[in-house]
Computed example of a mutant assay.
Amino acid sequence: MKRGRAYEEARKLGERYPVEYSEADRRVVLERFDFPPGWDPQFGKLRYELPDTYPRDMPTVYVPKEMSYEGGSPTHLLHGISPYGDSDWSKWCIEDHNANWDPASDTLVKLTTMMRASLADPYSDNPFAEGSA
């Protein structure tokens, strides 16, 4: 993991959200992320687990386990998968959305924008396609 880049990207996210950055744990948590309409609660945390190979490989994304969308649970919300030793989170499977992570141009800031689109259209197989959400 390129720690300088991750730190700078977390700092940039800090211009919009309170951010908890842990270089030792390779974790970035956005505090008070404003989830799109339909999510309950509307404000919560968004967690990125950075792989050792970051930025070459895309971070894993987690939302608080109590999150629900219009009372249901979209297929991309994997309640049974959480970070090792921390069952307060559920994985959001953005990888299924054909995100096409490009380490040369994609950042945690762009991932946050991608997450907003994904969460706004949580039942879509490709929320990034024109006409989704």
Rank of each mutant, 00 (worst) to 15 (best):
His79Met: 10
Asn126Glu: 11
Ser90Arg: 01
Tyr17Pro: 06
Glu20Phe: 12
Pro122Cys: 08
Arg26Met: 09
Arg32Asp: 15
Glu95Trp: 06
Pro37Met: 08
Asp96Trp: 14
Gly4Glu: 14
Leu50Cys: 06
Ser132Gln: 13
Phe128Ile: 04
Glu66Gly: 07
Thr107Val: 03
Ser90Asn: 04
Trp101His: 05
Asn100Arg: 13
Lys45Ile: 00
Phe35Ala: 10
Val63Glu: 01
Asn100Gln: 12
Tyr48Leu: 07
Glu95Ser: 13
Asn100Lys: 12
Leu108Ile: 01
Gly72Trp: 02
Leu13Ala: 05
Val19Lys: 07
Lys110Gln: 08
Trp89Gln: 06
Ala129Arg: 15
Ala6Asp: 04
Pro37Val: 10
Thr75Glu: 15
Ser87Gly: 11
Pro18Gln: 11
Cys93His: 12
Pro51Phe: 01
Pro127Cys: 07
Ala6Gly: 03
Asn98Trp: 11
Asp88Val: 11
Gly14Met: 10
Lys45Val: 00
Ser73Tyr: 03
Cys93Lys: 15
Tyr69Ala: 01
Tyr123Pro: 00
Val63His: 00
Ala120Val: 04
Ser22His: 10
Asp88Pro: 00
Asp86Ile: 11
Glu9Gly: 02
Arg26Gly: 05
Asp40Phe: 13
Lys91Val: 07
Arg32Cys: 01
Trp92Phe: 13
Asn100Glu: 13
Asp25Cys: 03
Ser118Ile: 02
Gln42Met: 09
Leu78Asp: 11
Ala120Trp: 04
Val29Asp: 02
Pro51Lys: 04
Met114Ser: 08
Asp25Ile: 00
Leu30Gly: 04
Met58Thr: 09
